[in-house]
Simulated scan of single mutants.
Amino acid sequence: MKHMKALGIKFIFTAIVVYSIFGIFYNASLGRLFWISVLVTGVAYIIGDLFVLPRFGYIIASIADLGLAFLSLWILGTLIIDITMPIVIASLFAAVFMALCESLFHVYMREQVFHTVPEGEKTPYSSDRLQTEFAEETNEHSVDEKKKENDKHK
């Protein structure tokens, strides 16, 4: 179930990028853009997130996802969309935006799907890192005692 949720998240940001870039520049149909999004999501999830990310880490996985997204968008765009102008630049822009989203997605995959966060690297908002401080001013007697001490020293 965790993989289905991760696939859904990945499909959503992939579809947003593909629909935005290719829909604006190439006026492609929604059906064709949907299939490009599905294929790019599936290939990138299997190769980039399940194979490269656990073995090589964030940076290599992000670079691999950038290259993989560029190649897959370029090839699929050429095959599926009726092209009136070069698709290389649009594929590169879309791949860069997807790589930026992928860097955040890799953190999600590591923490929620793989559960491989080392003990010393917890998220900054985990409940075991919260502390509560009590100052002396919260106690009425200590406030009164401080005032008396300050008055004596004057």
Score class of each variant (00 low, 15 high):
6 A>Q: 00
9 I>Q: 03
10 K>A: 06
19 Y>I: 06
20 S>R: 05
21 I>M: 11
24 I>A: 13
27 N>C: 10
28 A>K: 02
28 A>F: 05
29 S>E: 13
33 L>M: 11
35 W>M: 10
35 W>I: 09
45 Y>P: 04
46 I>G: 01
48 G>E: 02
49 D>A: 02
49 D>G: 02
51 F>A: 07
51 F>S: 04
52 V>T: 00
54 P>Y: 01
56 F>H: 12
60 I>F: 06
60 I>H: 04
61 A>S: 11
61 A>W: 03
64 A>E: 07
65 D>V: 04
66 L>T: 04
67 G>K: 04
68 L>M: 12
68 L>T: 02
70 F>S: 01
71 L>V: 10
72 S>D: 05
78 T>C: 12
79 L>E: 07
82 D>A: 12
84 T>V: 12
84 T>K: 12
88 V>D: 14
90 A>Q: 03
92 L>D: 09
97 F>T: 05
98 M>R: 05
99 A>G: 03
103 S>E: 03
106 H>Y: 00
106 H>W: 00
106 H>E: 05
107 V>D: 04
116 T>H: 00
118 P>T: 00
120 G>P: 08
121 E>R: 08
122 K>Q: 13
124 P>T: 00
126 S>A: 13
127 S>Y: 13
128 D>R: 09
129 R>C: 15
132 T>K: 15
133 E>P: 12
137 E>V: 15
144 D>S: 14
